[in-house]
Simulated scan of single mutants.
Amino acid sequence: MKSVIFEQIGRPVDILNVTDKALPEPGPNEVRIKVIAAPINPADIMFVQNLYGIRPKLPSGAGFEGVGVVDAVGEGVELQTGMRVSFTSIGTWSEYAIAHHRALIPVPDAMSDDVAAQLFVNPFTAYAMVQESGVQEGGWLMLTAAGSAFGKMVIQLCKKRGIKTIGTVRRDDLNDELKSLGLTEVINVETEQLAVRVKDITGGKGVSCILDAVGGHTATEAQKCLSKGGTMLIYGLLSLQDPEINVGLMIFRELTIKGFWLSDWMQRVDSQTRQDVAQNVISMLASGEIQLPVEATYSLDQIKEAVEYADRTGRWGKILMKP
């Protein structure tokens, strides 16, 4: 079978290669999945560069999620072959992948392969972070990198809940689309003063929560936009630069700044919360209530072109690998 492999740490375009491997056999509690499609997420790119919370064991496969059909099951697994599932694993950019049976989510017929391939990482993180933000109907939530696939998901979720949103961008070409999804206000951080604009928008109060994926200067400035008792949840570092923490603001506005990682959150919450998240996310995606657009698809042999495309600025949809 064909599989995307890397044998050293580095830039994805330099180190990712397609290799022929033997078909893997599932062990106890595992299943083998014939992969239909798998997205390229920022977490995948960080993992290849050894910048993620999970460290690669070289040589390693790449890709954390996908959709496929159960092809074989290991000992202790009571699942039927032939069922279509969304799944998480390491090495989903492959013709076949091995996953633990608990990392599978059966996909309803109403959900397309393109949506099912993206079911876990962005939708679950977005839903969980909006929950964790504590922002109520009528309140203000701000998100950086609003034009990302994750940002668009958050915007749509907040619109459903009646939460007002401010999104930051570096270009204005997606503004109309973001507004149509439900973004209340958009701020271009290249041409506008972030804290000044947020103060104007919120009547001087600021926002009660910020979801930040950028870090660096943007996150540093975003701290000034928090209202008293506000919280910043940091879930990414697209700039690859740490923000400066304003201790004075933290003390006198009683701010909270903390990280968010879906893997830890899913382990921390109770099983009922996990089930509620899954049911709500699947329902919204299957019904088309929430959109997850796809911009381009590539074969495994085109992996270098695919990761180059995924790194472009101004994209409006996800990039998928389709073996």
Score class of each variant (00 low, 15 high):
Met1Tyr: 04
Ile5Asp: 00
Glu7Pro: 10
Arg11His: 12
Arg11Gly: 10
Pro12Asn: 05
Pro12Gly: 13
Val13Lys: 08
Thr19Cys: 14
Thr19Val: 15
Lys21His: 10
Pro24Cys: 07
Gly27Arg: 12
Gly27Pro: 06
Glu30Val: 10
Glu30Cys: 05
Val31Leu: 05
Val31Asn: 01
Val35Glu: 00
Asn41Tyr: 02
Pro42His: 02
Met46Asp: 11
Asn50Trp: 11
Asn50Glu: 09
Arg55Pro: 10
Pro56Asp: 02
Pro56Trp: 04
Lys57Asp: 14
Leu58Asp: 00
Pro59Asp: 01
Gly63Cys: 07
Phe64Met: 03
Gly66Tyr: 06
Val67Leu: 05
Ala72Glu: 09
Ala72Phe: 07
Gly74Asp: 06
Gln80Cys: 08
Thr81Lys: 09
Gly82Thr: 14
Ser86Ile: 12
Phe87Asn: 00
Ile90Phe: 04
Gly91Glu: 00
Thr92Ala: 09
Trp93Met: 04
Ile98Gln: 02
Ala99Tyr: 03
His100Lys: 07
His100Asn: 10
Ile105Val: 15
Val107Trp: 01
Val107Cys: 08
Ala110Glu: 14
Ala110Asp: 09
Ser112Tyr: 11
Asp113Ser: 08
Leu119Phe: 13
Phe120Pro: 00
Asn122Met: 05
Phe124Val: 09
Phe124Ser: 02
Ala126Tyr: 03
Ala126His: 03
Ala126Met: 03
Tyr127Met: 10
Tyr127Gln: 05
Ala128Pro: 06
Gln131Gly: 14
Ser133Arg: 10
Leu141Gln: 04
Ser148Cys: 10
Ala149Met: 08
Phe150Gln: 00
Met153Ala: 06
Met153Trp: 11
Met153Glu: 08
Leu157Tyr: 14
Leu157Lys: 06
Lys159Ser: 11
Lys160Pro: 09
Gly162Gln: 06
Lys164Gly: 02
Thr165Tyr: 08
Thr168Leu: 07
Arg171Trp: 09
Asn175Pro: 10
Lys179Asn: 11
Lys179Ser: 13
Thr184Cys: 08
Asn188Pro: 05
Val189Thr: 14
Glu190Asn: 12
Thr191Tyr: 03
Glu192Met: 12
Gln193Trp: 04
Gln193Met: 10
Leu194Ala: 03
Val196Glu: 13
Val198Lys: 01
Lys199Gln: 14
Asp200Gln: 15
Gly203Lys: 12
Gly203Ser: 08
Gly206Pro: 11
Ser208Gln: 11
Cys209His: 07
Ala213Arg: 07
Val214Cys: 05
Gly215Gln: 06
Gly215Asp: 09
Thr218Ala: 10
Lys224Arg: 13
Leu226Ile: 13
Ser227Gln: 13
Met232Ser: 03
Met232Ala: 06
Met232Leu: 12
Gly236Ile: 05
Leu238Pro: 03
Leu238Lys: 02
Leu240Ser: 04
Leu240Pro: 05
Asp242Met: 14
Ile245Val: 15
Met250Glu: 02
Ile251Tyr: 13
Phe252Arg: 02
Phe252Val: 15
Phe252Thr: 12
Leu255Arg: 04
Ile257Tyr: 02
Ser263Ile: 12
Asp270Thr: 13
Asp270Ala: 05
Gln272Arg: 09
Val277Lys: 04
Gln279Trp: 11
Asn280Ile: 07
Asn280Met: 05
Val281Cys: 03
Glu289Pro: 06
Leu292Ser: 09
Val294Glu: 01
Val294Phe: 04
Val294Tyr: 01
Asp301Leu: 11
Ile303Gln: 01
Lys304Ile: 09
Lys304Leu: 05
Gly314Lys: 08
Arg315Asn: 05
Ile319Trp: 00
